[in-house]
Design a binder for these strands. Sequence first.
DNA 1: GTGTTAGCTGAAGTCAGGTTGAGGTCAAGA
DNA 2: TCTTGACCTCAACCTGACTTCAGCTAACAC
Lengths: 158, 158
Amino acid sequence: MAVDGKDLLTIGEVSDRSGFPQSALRFYEREGLLRATRTAGGQRRYERAVLRRLAFIRAARTIGVGLDEVRAGLDRLPDGRTPTKADWTRLSRSWRGRLDEQIQALQALRDGLDSCIGCGCLSLQRCRLYNPGDYVASYGAGARLLPPMLRRPPAEDL
Amino acid sequence: MAVDGKDLLTIGEVSDRSGFPQSALRFYEREGLLRATRTAGGQRRYERAVLRRLAFIRAARTIGVGLDEVRAGLDRLPDGRTPTKADWTRLSRSWRGRLDEQIQALQALRDGLDSCIGCGCLSLQRCRLYNPGDYVASYGAGARLLPPMLRRPPAEDL
DNA sequence: GTGTTAGCTGAAGTCAGGTTGAGGTCAAGA
DNA sequence: TCTTGACCTCAACCTGACTTCAGCTAACAC
């Protein structure tokens, strides 16, 4: 494990410590989100800093940031030196506003639903749930507001 | 349009009035969410009630309900008679709780982010953003909390 | 040196929720 | 009747984020 004093990690170790499957780590490397050195035999060896990078990726994915954007963020990290806390903080600060927007969008939806429950309208013209606001509507018909991970199994009382 | 007094709608009319592309209407029919009668020549003719059904589908999709679950909901509508407002209300009431849960999950995420910003930690062990609560975590690694439609283009200050 | 476990690649598959295209048919107005 | 726009089917394709598989090699413990 501790090889020539450099303490590099195998893909299995990175997988165990980060929780990402090895397949995802290889995928992220292909996609340019991670880098790894190789042994003479071609196996990946990761620096410890990759764990922080993966933490960033996990956090970004959790709030719905796409990989393209994650890559863009990671690409702005300083090239030569190991990123500092301040670098990571700068990166994550912009998510706060994004999350706020997402919460507001959902709350608007809920309010719309409240105005529908009881009237049973779901009117094509008037219902706020059917005709969400501009922000939501601008993404076009059929778009998904919420992802699989927040979906529950069908409610019994439906 | 008004054929033998029954006032059936063509797929084009349903598309125009509902906002769903014709391709989606055909897809929903294949998936068992809609039904249509056919003309002698095989063209679809829809009853007006399909518009309300589509309103339900649109609303459900907007809050992130998958088609499987939408179908399950629609299947519970009374078979013989035209659904009443009360039927639709019953169907949509259960979404309220779901939306509340979704909003709470996002708020928890935001609070976690707040505790991270400034410390720049993103610690694998401690960071709440990296290790979201049980509800979220139970959906497994790599899951997406938020969908494309709530994603903004990359922020300039990232 | 041998066995076991871990790792490699590239291609293909998965899932949802549809869209797109080719090639052909129907319905309605002039 | 003719024409033109609307409609039909079936199969293939799309996006995003990965996973899975087959067939093979590396690393390490004994």
